[in-house]
Design a protein around this nucleic acid. Structure first.
Ligand SMILES: [Zn+2]
Length: 478
DNA sequence: CGTTTTTGACCCGCGC
DNA sequence: GCGCGGGTCAAAAACG
């Protein structure tokens, strides 16, 4: 393909093919790079972000917009009551004056409410913007990393081939090739064999796949297995990132939630201790994309669908998929930054748990029991948290349609009803987007998580640096 | 006809 | 080594 030759060119080229410039224009990309590239900016950005978070937090404690409307109405009704009473006995000028005063107050309050509404909208779009920036950057980083990796791997493979050829020739001259084979690491041999099968199977059995494509796939999967020590070092973090799992629990009647990506089912298994089978999907939006997901219905509550994502997309995504991906990758980065900051092995996960805010323990949780580090985003309302879940997903509340039949009285129930309605429609694309952005908002709104995210971004940015020896550990913590 | 799903076989790591 | 369980492969069937 055209990607082969110049990594820098491709890195620059990538955004052109991405979706973001279509919607946001190339200039913003430049801004983004400026935004993150200098550490001063990063710092200033951090404080700015904290400010944003504080404000939105303050606002959200004040209630989400749908709620706000209620507040507004209350404010309206209170003066109107006095108004009515005034109408009843409109004789005294004092009362008239009072009325004027209250009218004035009312308008002031209305203005205030409006101001807060705009402010809220602004902050919301800012959060979204930051999220998108983060994701776009991740994509760029990913493509750059891959370019570097491809170059490096092809180089090392060439070297190894030459070396092997040399050895074989030499050994043939002096005896047999059997000795030479011993020099080939077993893993390497296995992986080569396996991949040659695998990459053909990938794209639907087209045996004669072009070598570039095959090599891409090959690099993607097998780079960590080649025992060049440098490569191990460098790809370790990436591999770790790929191994992190983010599972999303949501209510859905549909067999699979639509998250905007294209998936191909490649397996199904009966999971132990669960009557419902577990389905395995792989992303088919790009050739070498390693993202996988598992879908499984919960054993005791079959309306709950658990979708577990693993890996990062190596290609641009449609906006519909952006929400889900940015959410999950944010969660994954959070987990990763948490675990790398303390320790490498599984004990680190336990240590990482306190990073998660206790204010929302049911929303995100880290499982140390599973073999892979896993973050769970619980989007079911089984453990309602008004602060989190009554937050309107995006934009005005009016976009959500309420089934009125058994709408309980009281604002809290209204919020939960809204959520339930939302989650039950999770199979629909729009709802899923709304829901995920709600989740994203929840993640980004939390101070601890925000800090973790900032750290994660910092660590990711650190990994971009060409120096091989900078580990994510040193960067994530500082 | 190309792509996706189905489904039994296979692989691999782990505990015994 | 063996069995188990999670995960993946790939031929065949189904689909559009
Ligand atoms: Zn993908």
């Amino acid at each position: 393909m055209d990607v082969a030759s110049d990594p820098s060119l491709d890195a620059g080229d990538h955004p052109d093919r991405a979706y973001s410039p279509v919607t946001s224009g190339g200039k913003r990309i430049v801004n983004e790079m400026d935004f993150f590239s200098s550490k001063n900016h990063l710092n200033s950005k951090r404080t700015l972000w904290v400010d944003v978070k504080k404000e939105s937090r303050a606002h959200d404690q004040g209630m989400p917009p749908g709620y706000e409307i209620d507040i507004g109405l209350n404010l309206l009704t209170t003066p109107t009551d006095s108004d009515k009473s005034v109408v009843d006995d409109e004789t005294s000028p004092h009362i008239k004056e009072k009325r004027n005063q209250s009218n004035y107050k009312l308008s002031v309050l209305q203005a205030e409410v409006n101001r807060m509404k705009t402010e809220n909208q602004r902050l919301r779009s800012m959060v979204n913007h930051v999220n998108n920036n983060y994701y776009n950057l991740q994509m760029q980083i990913e493509s750059m990393k891959q370019q570097q990796q491809i170059e490096r791997i092809t180089k090392t493979v060439e070297d190894q081939r030459q070396m092997i050829d040399g050895i074989v020739l030499e050994e043939k001259r002096s005896g047999g090739a059997m000795v030479a084979r011993q020099f080939i690491p077993e893993k390497y041999e296995q992986s080569v064999e396996r991949t040659s099968r695998g990459c053909c199977g990938y794209r639907g059995h087209e045996g004669g796949e072009s070598p570039e494509i095959a090599s891409q796939d090959w690099v993607q999967n097998k780079a960590p297995k080649l025992d060049t020590s440098k490569d191990c070092d460098q790809t370790a973090d990436q591999a770790a990132m790929r191994r992190v799992r983010v599972s999303v629990r949501a209510r859905s009647e549909a067999p699979m939630i639509s998250d905007g990506c294209q998936w191909r089912k490649y397996g199904q298994k009966m999971a132990k201790g669960n009557p419902c089978p577990r389905a395995y999907y792989r992303c088919t939006m790009a050739l070498g994309c390693s993202v996988r997901k598992q879908v499984q219905r919960c054993a005791d509550d079959r309306t709950i669908l658990t979708t577990t994502y693993e890996g990062n997309h190596n290609h641009p995504l449609p906006p519909a998929a952006m929400t889900m991906v940015s959410t999950t990758s944010a969660a994954a980065s959070m987990l990763l930054s948490g675990s790398t900051s303390s320790s490498d092995h599984h004990g680190g996960l336990l240590n990482a748990t306190p990073i998660l805010p206790y204010t929302t323990p049911h929303f995100t949780s880290i499982s140390a029991s599973s073999p892979f580090p896993t973050v769970t985003l619980d989007l079911t309302n089984s453990t309602p948290n008004p602060l989190l879940f009554t937050r309107p997903p995006q934009g005005p509340f009016g976009h959500i349609h309420f089934p009125n039949q058994n709408l309980a009285s009281g604002p809290q129930n209204l919020g939960q009803q809204a959520l339930h309605n939302q989650t039950s429609k999770f199979c629909g694309l729009q709802s899923s987007r709304e829901m995920m952005s709600a989740a994203t908002a929840a993640i980004t709104a939390d101070p601890d998580l925000t800090a973790a995210l900032v750290a994660a971004i910092a660590s990711v940015m650190g990994n971009v640096s060409p120096h091989n020896n900078i580990s994510s550990n040193s960067n994530a913590t500082h």
